[in-house]
Design a protein around this nucleic acid. Structure first.
Lengths: 191, 191
DNA sequence: GTCTATAAAAGGATAGAC
DNA sequence: GTCTATCCTTTTATAGAC
């Protein structure tokens, strides 16, 4: 064979990460397969050697979010601190920089809601993983945080970042600082 | 003239509300002008007698959300109760019924983020109006609620409804009830 | 596996009649 | 103001060479 097996895997990963980044920044419909492939250093025709169609790529790209989230799964001894750092990083990331991967859960909520069940299931998986990660950070031997509080927190994080991408920089500042304060107070109150 | 002036205004309003409903349920790109016009009882060609292009329609439709939100602007004597009812209605509405207009702020966040500034500004306006409405409900002569807390609450409401449209019915139930409880606790604690 | 070339469909926008 | 008919661009997807 003319190409090693690793080559295909590498191509596939390039396509996946190029797609996830572009979709997150601009939305599924606003990015063409052409652009994704060019971004991955390939041409359009090749796309179909890797994926059945554009929707399958969407699904697989969203599932790849899990891998990002599952990092640092060691038992935390300073979980609360790590959690606060995570929230801060999340809310203060530079979402306008095209080189950085913004949170797909925040950037694609609405976009995913209008797709086939396959895509929505992938999103649901990643959302679940985010909640589990937080639960893990905030669980100690003695106490464990209420699951519904975690859901309220992730809703706030995802919601505020999604909204921030539509409003002015000035309004964004107040929005994100309000959410940060509120998340912290929820945690400090309960645990 | 063959058509009365009211006729055009009525047509325009039909187009606007038909568009807002369809966009909210399925997203901007997934709805064709053809469909919007058919839904309003007109044909595609006529569209351009009312709007410059599809994007202008999007902007105007989102601005129309304000009108919905600005209802009930009388001074509330039982604001806190009204607020709780509003949150409950918001979180428990039947978002899958195509006859009902779901909250465009929740259904279109991500969608709007990827459009021209004109559209984003319209969204920002409506978002502002929602926050003001809540502020109004929760203000009394003696106390007024922290603006950043309101932003955290609207982020949670919009975020959770947006997320709920991607996940399972079962998961949605827990998500929305968690947000409702958390919003209530934030209000009862502070005010 | 990757490329170039091309088919085929969808949908936004315009022209002209009534 | 509204209709029908048409243009034109974009983009997904396929065919076939290397």
């Amino acid at each position: 064979m003319r190409y090693a097996k690793e080559h295909k895997i590498e191509s596939r990963n390039n396509i996946l990460s190029s797609a996830l980044k572009l979709f997150s920044h601009r939305g599924f419909d606003n990015v063409s397969i052409d652009e994704i492939m060019a971004n991955a250093g390939l041409t359009r025709g090749t796309f179909y050697a890797h994926f059945k169609n554009k929707q399958e790529l969407y699904t697989k790209a969203i599932l790849a979010v899990d891998l990002e989230l599952e990092k640092n799964s060691s038992t935390p001894d300073n979980g609360k601190l790590q959690f606060k750092q995570m929230v801060t990083d999340y809310l203060e990331a530079d979402y306008s920089n095209p080189e950085i991967l913004p949170c797909p859960l925040a950037c694609l909520v609405t976009d995913v809601a209008n797709r086939e069940p396959e895509v929505r299931t992938a999103y649901a998986e990643s959302f679940k993983t985010l909640n589990l990660k937080i639960k893990h950070l905030l669980s100690t031997k003695s106490s464990s945080i209420d699951e519904e509080t975690i859901l309220a927190i992730t809703s706030m994080m995802i919601g505020s970042v999604a909204i921030s991408r539509t409003i002015s920089k000035q309004a964004t500042k107040k929005l994100l600082s309000g959410c940060k304060k509120t998340v912290f107070s929820l945690i400090d109150a309960e645990y």
